[in-house]
Amino acid sequence: MTQERPEPTRRALLAGLAGLALPAVPGARALAAGPASVATRPIPASGERIPVIGMGTSRTFNVGDDPGLRDARTEVLRVFFEAGGGMIDSSPMYGSSEAVIGYGLERLGMQETLFSATKVWIRSQAEGVEQMAESRRLWGLPRFDLMQIHNLVSWERHLETLRRDKAEGRARYIGITTSHGRRHRELEEIMAREPLDFVQLSYNVLDREVERRLLPLAAERGIAVIVNRPFRRGALFERIGDAPLPGWAAEVDCENWAQILLKFILSHPAVTCAIPATRQVAHMRENMGAQIGRMPDESLRKRMAAAVEAL
C-alpha cells in the first residue's frame, strides 16, 4: 500500500512560508533567512561542498505527461532550490522522472546550486552509453555532476564507461548504488578495490546495518555517501503516527519527525547527504529544515533510535 506521511501542522506550514513568519526554533528561522545558512559537507574526492539534503525522485516525480502533475512537481523543485537544495537524484528506471525533472528545470531556469545525479540502468555497455546520452537530453544538461551505476547492474562494464566519461567531461563524479539493503557484501568488495567518488545506500534510524562495515569503509576510502530511503519509503511515518515530538527534539532544532529522522542520518560522520523524496511542497519544506541548526551527538542519536524503536 502507498504509505502516506501526515500533513504538516499549521505551525510548520507557517514556518515553511519562508519570511512570512518568525517561528520559535532556530532551524525554521535559518530556513526563513535563506539558503546561505544550510549545512554542507565536502565530497572527499575533491573537497567541493554540497548541501546535506538532496532530493530523490523515485515514484514521486514519475508523473508521466500529465501537465498538472508536472507543474506540481515543478513547484516542489522550486521550493527545494529556494531552500538551498543541491543534489537531485534520479534514474532511467524511474519512468518519466528524468523527463519531469527536465521539464521543471526548463521552467525554473538552470539553478546554480543544482548537483545533478542520475544512473545508468541497463545490462549492455553500449546501450548504457546511449542511455546516459538520453538522460542528458531529458535533463537538458551537457553533463552530469554525478553518474552512478544503478544497483550494481553490469557494474564492471559500466565502470569502464564512467571512468572514460569522467576523463572526457561528461560526468564530474562517478559512483555506484544499492538500495533496500541488498548486495552489501558485493558493494563492500567494490568499494574496497575500485576508485569511486560516491556510493549510495539505504540507511535510516531502524535500518542500521551499514553502520557496521559500509559507512566506516566509505570514510576510510574517502568515498562520499548518499543515503536513500531515509523514511523507509514513508513506512517510518506510519510507525510514528501522531506520536508527539520528544522533548529533546528542540535540542537539535527539530520541528517535526521528518527532521529528527533526517538529522539522525546526517549526524553520522561518514554520510555526505540524504535524498528524501516527496511530492508535496509542505513536506519538502520540512525536509529542507533538517539542514539547519544543531546536529545530534552520539548520546542523542541513541535516544533517537530508542524513541523510534519504542513506537
Binding site: 523515485s58 515514484r59 514521486t60 508521466g64 528506471m93 524511474y94
Partner: peptide, 9 residues
C-alpha cells in the same frame, strides 16, 4: 514506481 494519482490520471 508510480503512485495512485498518477495511474488514475
Amino acid at each position: 514506481l508510480y503512485e495512485r494519482e498518477v495511474y488514475l490520471s
